[in-house]
Design a protein around this nucleic acid. Sequence first.
DNA 1: CGTTATAACATAGGAATCCTATGTATCGGA
DNA 2: TCCGATACATAGGATTCCTATGTTATAACG
Lengths: 111, 111
Amino acid sequence: MDTELLKGTLSLLILSLLSRKPMYGYELAATVHRDTDGTFTWREGSLYPSLHKLEAEGLIVGEWEEKETGRKRRYYQVTKKGRGALKAKVESWMELSRGVNRILEKSDGQA
Amino acid sequence: MDTELLKGTLSLLILSLLSRKPMYGYELAATVHRDTDGTFTWREGSLYPSLHKLEAEGLIVGEWEEKETGRKRRYYQVTKKGRGALKAKVESWMELSRGVNRILEKSDGQA
DNA sequence: CGTTATAACATAGGAATCCTATGTATCGGA
DNA sequence: TCCGATACATAGGATTCCTATGTTATAACG
Protein backbone atom coordinates (compact mmCIF):
# COMPACT_ATOMS: atom_id res chain seq x y z
CA MET A 1 0.00 0.00 0.00
CA ASP A 2 0.94 3.61 -0.31
CA THR A 3 3.00 4.25 2.77
CA GLU A 4 2.86 7.94 2.04
CA LEU A 5 -0.64 7.90 3.46
CA LEU A 6 0.58 6.63 6.77
CA LYS A 7 1.89 10.08 7.36
CA GLY A 8 -0.42 12.71 6.15
CA THR A 9 -3.74 13.08 4.52
CA LEU A 10 -2.96 16.51 3.15
CA SER A 11 -2.52 15.66 -0.52
CA LEU A 12 -5.48 13.29 -0.44
CA LEU A 13 -7.80 15.94 0.92
CA ILE A 14 -6.50 18.67 -1.37
CA LEU A 15 -7.22 16.50 -4.39
CA SER A 16 -10.61 15.54 -3.03
CA LEU A 17 -11.58 19.14 -2.34
CA LEU A 18 -10.42 20.27 -5.77
CA SER A 19 -12.51 17.55 -7.40
CA ARG A 20 -15.54 19.54 -6.26
CA LYS A 21 -14.50 22.69 -8.07
CA PRO A 22 -11.41 24.82 -8.68
CA MET A 23 -10.24 26.57 -5.53
CA TYR A 24 -7.32 28.68 -4.34
CA GLY A 25 -5.10 27.89 -1.39
CA TYR A 26 -6.68 30.04 1.24
CA GLU A 27 -10.11 28.81 0.20
CA LEU A 28 -9.01 25.18 0.53
CA ALA A 29 -7.83 25.73 4.10
CA ALA A 30 -11.03 27.55 5.01
CA THR A 31 -13.21 24.88 3.42
CA VAL A 32 -11.57 21.91 5.10
CA HIS A 33 -11.66 23.73 8.41
CA ARG A 34 -15.35 24.49 8.08
CA ASP A 35 -16.42 21.11 6.69
CA THR A 36 -14.72 19.21 9.50
CA ASP A 37 -15.69 21.57 12.32
CA GLY A 38 -12.09 22.48 12.91
CA THR A 39 -10.56 19.01 12.90
CA PHE A 40 -8.18 20.10 10.17
CA THR A 41 -6.40 23.41 10.44
CA TRP A 42 -3.84 23.59 7.67
CA ARG A 43 -0.88 25.91 8.11
CA GLU A 44 0.43 27.99 5.26
CA GLY A 45 3.82 26.37 5.70
CA SER A 46 2.27 22.99 4.96
CA LEU A 47 -0.38 23.94 2.45
CA TYR A 48 1.49 26.02 -0.09
CA PRO A 49 4.51 23.75 -0.42
CA SER A 50 2.12 20.84 -0.84
CA LEU A 51 0.25 22.63 -3.60
CA HIS A 52 3.54 23.37 -5.36
CA LYS A 53 4.53 19.74 -5.11
CA LEU A 54 1.21 18.49 -6.47
CA GLU A 55 1.54 20.90 -9.36
CA ALA A 56 5.13 19.83 -10.03
CA GLU A 57 3.88 16.25 -10.17
CA GLY A 58 1.21 17.21 -12.66
CA LEU A 59 -1.72 16.27 -10.44
CA ILE A 60 -3.12 19.79 -10.33
CA VAL A 61 -2.68 22.94 -12.39
CA GLY A 62 -2.80 26.46 -11.08
CA GLU A 63 -3.79 29.66 -12.78
CA TRP A 64 -3.39 33.21 -11.53
CA GLU A 65 -6.48 35.33 -11.44
CA GLU A 66 -6.12 39.00 -10.78
CA LYS A 67 -8.91 41.36 -9.91
CA GLU A 68 -8.93 44.91 -11.25
CA THR A 69 -7.82 46.02 -7.81
CA GLY A 70 -4.58 44.08 -7.97
CA ARG A 71 -5.51 41.25 -5.60
CA LYS A 72 -4.15 37.97 -6.91
CA ARG A 73 -5.30 34.41 -6.32
CA ARG A 74 -4.02 31.16 -7.73
CA TYR A 75 -6.87 28.81 -8.64
CA TYR A 76 -6.07 25.13 -8.86
CA GLN A 77 -7.91 22.34 -10.60
CA VAL A 78 -7.33 18.61 -10.81
CA THR A 79 -5.76 17.19 -13.95
CA LYS A 80 -6.64 13.87 -15.52
CA LYS A 81 -3.54 12.42 -13.94
CA GLY A 82 -4.67 13.93 -10.66
CA ARG A 83 -8.02 12.19 -10.83
CA GLY A 84 -6.26 8.86 -11.20
CA ALA A 85 -4.00 9.65 -8.26
CA LEU A 86 -7.00 10.67 -6.17
CA LYS A 87 -8.72 7.39 -6.84
CA ALA A 88 -5.61 5.46 -5.77
CA LYS A 89 -5.19 7.57 -2.67
CA VAL A 90 -8.80 7.07 -1.65
CA GLU A 91 -8.37 3.33 -1.95
CA SER A 92 -5.17 3.47 0.11
CA TRP A 93 -6.96 5.50 2.74
CA MET A 94 -9.81 2.99 2.97
CA GLU A 95 -7.38 0.13 3.27
CA LEU A 96 -5.44 1.90 5.99
CA SER A 97 -8.62 2.85 7.78
CA ARG A 98 -9.97 -0.68 7.65
CA GLY A 99 -6.67 -2.03 8.96
CA VAL A 100 -6.50 0.33 11.91
CA ASN A 101 -10.11 -0.28 12.84
CA ARG A 102 -9.64 -4.01 12.72
CA ILE A 103 -6.78 -3.84 15.19
CA LEU A 104 -8.60 -1.43 17.47
CA GLU A 105 -11.79 -3.48 17.49
CA LYS A 106 -10.00 -6.73 18.15
CA SER A 107 -8.06 -5.17 21.01
CA ASP A 108 -11.08 -3.44 22.49
CA GLY A 109 -12.10 -4.62 25.90
CA GLN A 110 -8.65 -5.80 26.92
CA ALA A 111 -7.64 -2.40 28.22
CA MET B 1 -6.32 17.32 17.85
CA ASP B 2 -3.18 15.26 18.06
CA THR B 3 -1.32 16.16 14.90
CA GLU B 4 1.04 13.32 15.58
CA LEU B 5 -1.60 10.97 14.26
CA LEU B 6 -1.63 12.70 10.93
CA LYS B 7 1.67 11.02 10.34
CA GLY B 8 1.72 7.51 11.49
CA THR B 9 -0.42 5.04 13.26
CA LEU B 10 2.51 3.02 14.54
CA SER B 11 2.44 4.02 18.19
CA LEU B 12 -1.35 3.82 18.28
CA LEU B 13 -1.36 0.27 16.99
CA ILE B 14 1.54 -0.86 19.18
CA LEU B 15 -0.30 0.33 22.27
CA SER B 16 -3.52 -1.24 21.08
CA LEU B 17 -1.88 -4.58 20.38
CA LEU B 18 -0.10 -4.59 23.72
CA SER B 19 -3.39 -3.94 25.48
CA ARG B 20 -4.38 -7.47 24.45
CA LYS B 21 -1.43 -9.07 26.18
CA PRO B 22 2.32 -8.58 26.61
CA MET B 23 4.23 -9.14 23.40
CA TYR B 24 7.75 -8.80 22.06
CA GLY B 25 8.75 -6.79 19.02
CA TYR B 26 8.90 -9.48 16.42
CA GLU B 27 5.57 -10.83 17.64
CA LEU B 28 3.95 -7.41 17.30
CA ALA B 29 5.03 -7.10 13.68
CA ALA B 30 3.83 -10.60 12.87
CA THR B 31 0.50 -10.05 14.61
CA VAL B 32 -0.34 -6.77 12.91
CA HIS B 33 0.65 -8.25 9.58
CA ARG B 34 -1.56 -11.27 10.07
CA ASP B 35 -4.55 -9.46 11.55
CA THR B 36 -4.67 -6.95 8.69
CA ASP B 37 -3.95 -9.40 5.89
CA GLY B 38 -0.70 -7.67 5.11
CA THR B 39 -1.88 -4.08 5.12
CA PHE B 40 0.75 -3.25 7.71
CA THR B 41 4.27 -4.54 7.29
CA TRP B 42 6.40 -2.93 9.94
CA ARG B 43 10.13 -2.69 9.36
CA GLU B 44 12.61 -3.30 12.12
CA GLY B 45 14.04 0.15 11.54
CA SER B 46 10.65 1.64 12.41
CA LEU B 47 9.44 -0.79 15.02
CA TYR B 48 12.34 -1.04 17.44
CA PRO B 49 13.08 2.68 17.66
CA SER B 50 9.38 3.27 18.22
CA LEU B 51 9.31 0.74 21.04
CA HIS B 52 12.32 2.41 22.63
CA LYS B 53 10.62 5.76 22.39
CA LEU B 54 7.38 4.52 23.92
CA GLU B 55 9.35 2.99 26.76
CA ALA B 56 11.33 6.21 27.28
CA GLU B 57 8.02 8.05 27.51
CA GLY B 58 6.80 5.60 30.12
CA LEU B 59 3.90 4.29 28.06
CA ILE B 60 5.20 0.74 27.97
CA VAL B 61 7.72 -1.26 29.95
CA GLY B 62 9.92 -4.01 28.60
CA GLU B 63 11.40 -7.01 30.31
CA TRP B 64 13.99 -9.42 28.99
CA GLU B 65 13.10 -13.07 29.04
CA GLU B 66 15.76 -15.63 28.34
CA LYS B 67 15.18 -19.22 27.61
CA GLU B 68 17.55 -21.85 28.89
CA THR B 69 19.06 -22.06 25.45
CA GLY B 70 20.15 -18.44 25.47
CA ARG B 71 17.50 -17.02 23.16
CA LYS B 72 16.39 -13.59 24.41
CA ARG B 73 13.14 -11.68 23.87
CA ARG B 74 12.00 -8.36 25.26
CA TYR B 75 8.36 -8.52 26.32
CA TYR B 76 6.52 -5.22 26.55
CA GLN B 77 3.36 -4.34 28.41
CA VAL B 78 1.31 -1.17 28.63
CA THR B 79 1.66 0.98 31.73
CA LYS B 80 -1.12 2.91 33.40
CA LYS B 81 0.14 6.03 31.68
CA GLY B 82 0.16 4.09 28.43
CA ARG B 83 -3.49 3.14 28.80
CA GLY B 84 -4.38 6.80 29.13
CA ALA B 85 -2.31 7.65 26.09
CA LEU B 86 -3.95 4.86 24.12
CA LYS B 87 -7.39 6.17 24.93
CA ALA B 88 -6.42 9.65 23.75
CA LYS B 89 -4.84 8.29 20.58
CA VAL B 90 -7.91 6.25 19.74
CA GLU B 91 -10.07 9.33 20.09
CA SER B 92 -7.72 11.30 17.89
CA TRP B 93 -7.79 8.56 15.30
CA MET B 94 -11.58 8.50 15.26
CA GLU B 95 -11.73 12.26 14.90
CA LEU B 96 -9.22 12.18 12.04
CA SER B 97 -11.03 9.31 10.39
CA ARG B 98 -14.39 11.03 10.65
CA GLY B 99 -12.91 14.23 9.22
CA VAL B 100 -11.34 12.54 6.23
CA ASN B 101 -14.47 10.55 5.47
CA ARG B 102 -16.61 13.65 5.64
CA ILE B 103 -14.49 15.41 3.05
CA LEU B 104 -14.33 12.36 0.81
CA GLU B 105 -18.06 11.75 0.96
CA LYS B 106 -18.93 15.34 0.29
CA SER B 107 -16.59 15.41 -2.69
CA ASP B 108 -17.73 12.09 -4.05
CA GLY B 109 -19.43 12.16 -7.39
CA GLN B 110 -17.75 15.34 -8.53
CA ALA B 111 -14.78 13.52 -9.94
C1' DC C 1 27.85 -31.13 9.33
C1' DG C 2 27.82 -26.96 6.82
C1' DT C 3 24.79 -23.76 4.67
C1' DT C 4 20.79 -21.14 4.37
C1' DA C 5 16.43 -19.22 6.23
C1' DT C 6 14.13 -17.44 9.97
C1' DA C 7 13.85 -15.42 14.52
C1' DA C 8 15.07 -11.46 17.35
C1' DC C 9 17.22 -7.49 18.55
C1' DA C 10 19.75 -3.02 17.43
C1' DT C 11 21.45 1.47 15.28
C1' DA C 12 23.19 4.86 11.76
C1' DG C 13 21.89 7.69 8.11
C1' DG C 14 18.71 9.61 5.10
C1' DA C 15 14.12 10.76 2.87
C1' DA C 16 9.63 12.73 3.32
C1' DT C 17 6.16 15.33 5.65
C1' DC C 18 4.60 18.86 8.37
C1' DC C 19 5.30 22.88 11.50
C1' DT C 20 7.14 27.42 13.18
C1' DA C 21 8.56 31.63 11.95
C1' DT C 22 8.98 35.21 8.95
C1' DG C 23 8.15 38.20 4.99
C1' DT C 24 5.33 40.71 1.45
C1' DA C 25 1.14 42.85 -0.18
C1' DT C 26 -3.96 43.81 -0.45
C1' DC C 27 -8.36 44.69 1.59
C1' DG C 28 -12.22 45.96 4.88
C1' DG C 29 -13.84 47.96 8.98
C1' DA C 30 -13.57 50.85 13.28
C1' DT D 1 -5.46 55.55 9.68
C1' DC D 2 -4.51 51.57 11.95
C1' DC D 3 -5.42 46.78 12.51
C1' DG D 4 -7.15 42.31 11.43
C1' DA D 5 -8.10 39.29 7.82
C1' DT D 6 -6.93 37.81 3.12
C1' DA D 7 -3.46 35.62 0.11
C1' DC D 8 0.73 34.09 -1.28
C1' DA D 9 5.66 32.46 -0.37
C1' DT D 10 10.01 30.29 1.63
C1' DA D 11 13.72 29.01 5.04
C1' DG D 12 14.81 26.09 8.67
C1' DG D 13 13.86 22.61 11.84
C1' DA D 14 11.32 18.65 14.21
C1' DT D 15 9.39 14.19 13.66
C1' DT D 16 8.41 9.93 11.58
C1' DC D 17 9.52 6.25 8.95
C1' DC D 18 12.57 3.66 5.77
C1' DT D 19 16.91 1.51 3.92
C1' DA D 20 20.84 -0.66 5.03
C1' DT D 21 23.67 -3.02 7.95
C1' DG D 22 25.18 -5.78 11.86
C1' DT D 23 24.87 -9.42 15.53
C1' DT D 24 23.41 -13.75 17.57
C1' DA D 25 20.46 -17.91 17.97
C1' DT D 26 17.51 -21.50 16.09
C1' DA D 27 15.56 -24.56 12.48
C1' DA D 28 15.64 -26.94 8.20
C1' DC D 29 17.81 -29.16 4.56
C1' DG D 30 20.83 -31.79 1.74
